[in-house]
């Protein structure tokens, strides 16, 4: 059994034919060539494959592509492009929020809406709140302190410059 589905991925709509059993993560990687979608555990434990479905973070390894017919998907490629210009990406770089980089797309896609919400509230979150927000993502390199600092920096700098991401 195959089904034709239309996904609007990073702003571009395309119809692909998929087996129902294919995971959104695999379809994004193989059919859309978006290698920023990283598959870590493939059972919802590590958060590496987090993407946005209609604006909401979702684990692409716990999602069948057929469930997303007609929906808008955003991957890490939509954040700041190849130069990683998004404020959160810049903050990750400055604060040593990554080392090997495997988990980084998942952290960014999980945390970008959190950063936006905090900037909209004009409030720098407590470290405990940041840790709760990223509790579904596993990083084996950094020990997390750099990621917490990066989130704090991204929020603080955007509040100070008054430039909330849309």
């Amino acid at each position: 059994m195959t089904i034709d589905i239309t996904l609007t991925v990073n702003g571009t709509a395309r119809t692909v034919r998929v087996e129902p059993r294919r995971l959104l993560a695999d379809v994004l990687r193989h059919d859309f060539a978006l290698s920023g979608v990283h598959v870590g555990c493939a059972h919802g434990a590590c958060g590496c494959c987090t993407v946005h479905v209609d604006g909401t973070p979702r684990l692409a390894c716990l999602t069948f592509a057929v469930q997303c017919d007609g929906k808008a998907i955003h991957t890490v490629e939509s954040l700041g492009g190849v130069d990683a210009t998004h404020p959160l990406q810049q903050a990750f770089s400055i604060e040593h929020g990554l080392q090997c980089g495997y988990c980084t797309p998942g952290f960014l896609m999980t945390l970008a809406p959190f950063v936006d919400a905090m900037v909209a509230e004009r409030r720098v979150p407590e470290d405990a709140e940041i840790r709760e927000a990223m509790s579904g993502n596993i990083c084996r390199c950094t020990g997390y302190h750099g990621i917490v600092a990066a989130v704090r920096r991204a929020v603080t700098e955007q509040i100070e410059t008054g430039s909330a991401q849309p």
Partner: peptide, 9 residues
């Protein structure tokens, strides 16, 4: 329950 992304979905 789980983590924020799991609670969203």
């Amino acid at each position: 329950i789980g983590h924020p992304t799991i609670r969203e979905n």
